[in-house]
Every structure is written in structure tokens, then in C-alpha cells.
Design a protein around this nucleic acid. Structure first.
Lengths: 192, 192, 192, 192
DNA sequence: TAGTAATCGAGACGGTACGTCAAGTCTTGTC
DNA sequence: GACAAGACTTGACGTACCGTCTCGATTACTA
């Protein structure tokens, strides 16, 4: 007798794990719901009941399997804290073996409204919010010029990173991150 | 009697026009080489002889149909010239009806190496080069701090733009562009 | 509050009624146990507990909803009685709206042994028996040649009817029935 | 190098052979276009391009693989010729291994208009016509009563046969055929 | 000017996956 | 314990495109 039939949350978990696993083996283009279901030992319907598309499934899988924490440290030194945090993100999005899946998922967001929305709500926006909150605290402590636009700062921090990741597709080195950080802080520091 | 059978360059042109046209009607996801060939009144072979994939065809089509010019003006005022140029790019990538196809094509580059390479070589790198060249000229004329990293400047200029375009997918307003420009120049200007 | 939950025989009845009803709406091919259960407001289990297959359910439903009577009259005139009886059968099997379901059920019997057996035991054989009994009585009364094979007579009476119903699928007109009857009686009458 | 790719008629033939073969192995209910295509080494589309449904395919397959001849002999003796012909039909429809497929196909005709029409046009009607033609000749030669309805005779000949085949599903013995024939001829013979 | 090679349209072909449907089994919680 | 509800695996459905491959026209170049 096989173990009692699996249900609900167990299955959801198992399918997401399989998705990431198989995605790494095959690459996004050759990844199919058909294959995921087969590998997970699950009917296709069981997948479709939970996710409307390959993109949505991959998004969920990546975030749930890995996107857990990424919370800002607060050591009192903004620059150091930002660097720590960005390095963590780079580690997640820009390093093998998950980088290509993350890139593919963002690619999917370009022609799948649902994926785009979920990506923003569940990953991008929260990260952005944390960054801004950390910057606000620094400003209150006089570490930043009081009239600098912090939303813009967040954008200038993130933009170049994603530019490298998605557009030029050069490796995201710590050095690059540091150069961006330094340039930004030069502009943000309170003038004497 | 049908018009004499078309060949070579004519066909290439016609197929690319059809691609953009049909891409706008159907969206990238539902666009297929099958449909393009049918609409263009062309055998599938004729398409495959010219392009290896849907992504490559779309890239070619978008760049050939539209990406022609985008050359930097030189009025002597760097800031104004950059603004002009960036507005032109935003107009191209961020405005209906082509924005969604451009976004889809960049999305495709995330899991198609060939598209990624071509996108860089034929669009991104040339633009970047032009930007850097224009900045260099400005620096020679003392408009910029002599120790600022111009490659980095280019990245900080482009990054937030693509971040908005691809990640948060908010509209690319002139105001946003100007805020980025202003922040960057605050950091780049020679200190008194 | 819904009416108190139904049980046993009530349910059996309700399911069979729904089957015939839905069968008429959708046709046999698109009829499904899934849909019947849903329409009857019943769990699938409750259906499967009672019938092993769609065919078996339909057979039961048709016979129970309608196949009740069909008993031979006995007016003393064999020919008239046979005609009456056959017309009743034709009315049942060959007229809208149940004809197509009856035909489909007989069709099902062609690849479902259980349906075939049940169809014979519960409908065909009893009818045949009644016919033969009526003929025997007529023979005893000297209305038929004493050496005619009455089983064969029954077959010659039924066969052409089902041939029209199932094979040529032309309408079963009273005229046709009468022609068969007349021809048969010409052969069955005692020779002078 | 594999042999040059198969086309058109070759494939049609191969698919029909596979259909009959697989139909015998699995039975009609478990026969699927999916399996046929796989076994024949053919894409599903290649099957659907040729036939609209499993029933239509099976009909074609059975008739093409086997239903070739079945032409009436003419020895001058009507009764003998009819017997010969009917025995041939019984051999085809009523004997393993094809009987169950033939029955299933006729079953399918009960809820598939297309199959019903094709079955009639391509098998039933031609056979009926041949029978009537043979009977007409016999009547011209004075072997039959001049006022007997020959269409009806055909029906009385065929009906009982299909009745046994489809309804009671008893074996179609030569003895049964002969009893029907004898009864019919008793009615058809010219009275002295 | 004829012959030959390339190019074309059309679309058949073997595949792969799609997203849907229903089958029949099993689980959960309610009555 | 019977029930409604519905999750689950399985398997097939019929469709859409993929990229490759004939097949005969044209069409252009070569001899």
C-alpha cells in the first residue's frame, strides 16, 4: 500500500520544488508544466488548479524556495548596510544556479501581466520599501542630505543592477555594486 | 495573374513589416512564425532561411522598422543633449504601440542567448557608446568633474530607465527622466 | 436551509430522472457521470455506488422511466394485436425525444458486455417471450400454420424493425411495420 | 539515413492497418487515436487530417482492410446465390476477430451521424442494392412471385441477421440463416 | 536561347506541449 | 454510515506550432 495520498499544502510544496529543480536542468524554455507534473508525480490538473501559467508557477517557486528573508540589517552605518543588502540580492538573482531562472521569470513578466504584477507585489515593492525605510532612518540621523529624494535613490541603486543583469548581462561583481554605491553617496551626502 | 513572385530583400522587408504588424495585433505570446508566414503570404521555409527564431525575427523587425536613428545632438549643453536623447529612447521603448513588443523582445533575451547578444551588439552597446562619447566631450570642455567614471554615469542614466520599463512597469514620464538626470549631474558637476 | 438530505431510493430515482433529462439535452456522447451528479446535486460516489458505468445507468434510467408496460393485448385477432404491440414499441424506441437515447444505449451494448446482457434480460427477451406466447395462442386457435417456427416469426418481426432503427436509420413508419406484418402472415397463414 | 519520409496514401494505408490491429488488441473502448498514432509512428495531426473521429477512422479501416468484394454470384439459382452471399457477410461481420470491431462501429453509428451516414453509403446501401438486383433478375425469370416487394424482401433477409448480431448477440449460425431464407422463400414463391 | 540552379508558395510530416475534460478512487467533514 | 463536495491520478482529447521535409512552379543566372 502506497503512503496515504498526498494533499493540499504538501503537494503545493512538492510541485514548487520540482519546478526549480527541473528548471535548472532544462532551462526555462524547455521547462513545461507537462514535465513538471510528471516529475512531481502529479496530475496536470493539480498544477493548473494552483497556478494559471508556467510563469506564475516559476515565480511562486523561486520566491518560496528561496526568497525568504532578505531583510535589512541595521548596524548604524547606512552605506555598509546597503552594501550588505545589495550583495545578498546579487547573490540571489545574479549567481548560478538560480540566476537564469530568475532572469527568465523577469523575462516572462514582459508579456504576462499577472507575472509582472506578482513579481512587483511580492518581491520588488517590498525590497524597495525596505530600502527606503533604511534610508529614511539614515536621513533622520543626519547621515544624508535632508533634501535628497529617497525613492529616487532607491531607483538609482536598483536600476544599474538590473541593467547589468538583464540588458548587458555582464556578471554582477561586488566591485560594480560598490562603484554605484559610492557614486550615489557622493551625491547624497550632506554638503559641508 | 498574381504579381511576379517576390524575392530576396523585398521579402525580408515584407516579413519584418508583417512581424511588427501582427505582433501589435496579437501580442508577443500569441505571435507565431506560422502566422507571420501566412499573413505575409510566404512559405515558412522562407522565414526560417532568414531567422533562427521568433525572438531573432522580432529583434530584427523592431530595429529595422524603427531603431534607425537615435543619434546624439550636440548643442554644447550636455545636460540638454542627454535629455533630448533619453527622451527619444523613452519615446521608442516606452510608448505604445511598440513598447510591449520591445519589452517582450528584451524578455526573450533572458532565455535566448542569441537574442541577448544581438540586442546588445545592435542596440544597447551603440547607444551606450554614444552616451559615453558625448560625456567625454563634455568633460574635455570642463563641464564635468574630471575624475567621474563615465561608464558608470551611463549605467546610472540607463539603469533606472530600464528598471521602470521592465521591473516596476510604471510609465516612463519626462519628469522621472529629469529627476534622474538632475541627481546624476549633481554628483558629476565639478566641485567648486 | 436545504431540504433534509435525501437518501436511498429517492436518490436512485432522482439520478435516473436527471440522466434521461440531461441525456436529451446533451446527447449521449456528451453525457457524463460528472455532469449527471452535478445536475442531480449528488456526489459522484453516490452514482458509482449504484451503477458501474454510464451505459448501465442510462439503461436503467430509460427502462425505469419509461419501459414499464408494453404488454400484449388480446382481442382475439393476432394480426391486430401484433400490430398494436409493435406500434407501441416503435413509439417508444423510434420517436423523439427518447429514440436517440435508446439507440445510443443499444450502441453501447456493442462494446459493453454488461449493458448487452442487461438489455437482453430486461427488455429484449421479455418482449420476445410475450410475442411468442401470443403467437402460440393464435396457433392453438388455428389462426397460424401449425408447422411454422414461432421463434423465427418473432425474429422476422423484430429484425426488420431494428434494421431500420439502427442500420439504415430511416423513420419507422406504421406503413413499414404493416408491410412486414403482411408479408410475414402471408407466409404463416395455413395453406388451404 | 532513414527511408524517405512517407506520404499520402502510404500513410493512410498504414494508419488503417494499425487501427484494425490495435483495435483487435485493445477493444474499441480502449482504442484511442493517441495510441493509434503512436503505434503507427505518426503524428496525431496526420490522423486528424484524414478522419474526424475514432469512429470514422475505424469504419474506413474495416471497410478498406476487408470489405473489398462481397459481390453476388449468379449461378441461376437465387436461393443458393443468396445463401452464398449472406454466408459471406456473416463471415465478415459475425466471426472473430473482426466481429467485435464491426459491432462497435455500428454501435458508434448510433450516436455519430457521420459514421451512420458513411456506414450506409459505403456498406449497407450497396449490399442492399446488390441483393435487390439479384432478386429482380430472379423475378424476371419467374422464380419469384411477380407481386412481391423486393425491397421488403431484402429487409426481411437482413433484419433478422442484424437482430441476432446486435441485439441478442447470439452466434450467427448457418442454420439460422437458412431458416430465415427458407421462411422468406416460402412467402415469395409463386403460388401454384 | 536553352538549360540549370536557386528560390519560392504551399503545406505534409513527426513531435511536443498545450489546456480541458471526464474517468474512477479517495478524503474530509456534515448530517 | 450514507452523503455532498471535491481533490486527486490518469489518460485522452483536439489544437497549435515547432522545425524539417518534399513538391512543383517560377525566376534568374550560366553556357
Amino acid at each position: 500500500m502506497p503512503p496515504t495520498r498526498r494533499r493540499g499544502p504538501d503537494l503545493t510544496e512538492a510541485i514548487m520544488r520540482t519546478t526549480v529543480e527541473l528548471g535548472q536542468e532544462l532551462g526555462y524554455a524547455r521547462l513545461s508544466i507537462e514535465a513538471i507534473a510528471a516529475r512531481a508525480g502529479v496530475g496536470k490538473h493539480t498544477v493548473y488548479r494552483r497556478w494559471p501559467s508556467k510563469g506564475a508557477l516559476l515565480l511562486d517557486s523561486l520566491l518560496s524556495v528561496n526568497g525568504a528573508a532578505l531583510d535589512y540589517p541595521d548596524t548604524g552605518d547606512v552605506l555598509a548596510d546597503l552594501r550588505t543588502q545589495i550583495h545578498a540580492i546579487v547573490e540571489l538573482l545574479g549567481r548560478a544556479p538560480l540566476d537564469s531562472l530568475f532572469r527568465a521569470m523577469i523575462g516572462e513578466a514582459q508579456h504576462d501581466t499577472g507575472v509582472a504584477a506578482a513579481l512587483n507585489e511580492r518581491f520588488i515593492a517590498p525590497q524597495a520599501r525596505k530600502t527606503v525605510v533604511r534610508l529614511e532612518k539614515a536621513r533622520e540621523q543626519g547621515q544624508l542630505s535632508p533634501d535628497f529624494d529617497l525613492d529616487l535613490a532607491m531607483t538609482i541603486l536598483s536600476g544599474p543592477l538590473y541593467f547589468r543583469l538583464l540588458i548587458t548581462q555582464e556578471p554582477l561583481t561586488p566591485a560594480y555594486v560598490d562603484r554605484v554605491l559610492k557614486a550615489l553617496f557622493t551625491g547624497m551626502r550632506p554638503r559641508p
